[in-house]
Design a protein around this nucleic acid. Sequence first.
DNA 1: GCGACAG
DNA 2: ATCTTGTCGC
Length: 225
Amino acid sequence: MKLPPPRHPWSLSPKRAIALQERLRSEVLHRRLPRGTRVVAGGDCAFVDGGTRIVACWVVWNLATESVVETASAIRPVRFPYVPGLLSFREAPALLAAARKLHTEPDAFMLDGHGLAHPRRFGIACHVGLLLGRPCLGCAKSLLCGAHDEPADLPGGRAPILHREEAIGIALRTRAGAKPVYVSVGHLARLGDAVQLALACTRGYRLPEPTRLAHIEVTRLTRGG
DNA sequence: GCGACAG
DNA sequence: ATCTTGTCGC
């Protein structure tokens, strides 16, 4: 997959990283996803060698045929510490390297983390989506900031995530009896479409298939075969 | 100053 | 994320 040229270095201090987020967030675009969106790439990462190297993996999933189209992965040295709010500086390099290996052109990308539901409105889904120059949304397992009411306990139940008087995402119930997942826009997408897509990609598990399968795959690469 | 804090 | 077994509940 052909990617846009690099926009910035990855070796920088947390302080400069925050400044970069403030500068790049204005470039994030809100667009509705094409109605025929079916091929979704889910991405996830895992660490190896005592947290020295990071493995990123994308699993391209077709929600119409409910099958995996392609898988791609890459391994990179870890160059940034884990700092809440700066996750992309730790995982994006590996995710972008893996994305370049894809032969398929996904309709949209889904990440294990937040997009707009971020203190500076620039989570990893915004950052990676912007650098990929493609539609991207975030589907996180826990909240980074904001609060929400309890969503109805049935698939599709939802409640807005509020932060500083602003609706930044949706707490979406994908499975009865399970904690909701947190959906927010990354780049070239709208919240309503992101929620519909996440729900359309769900197959009985709490996490949507693209992200769920990416987690299984990256774990397999890390430990098992 | 105190508590919270994606993966 | 990662270190780790069994166990409670639908």
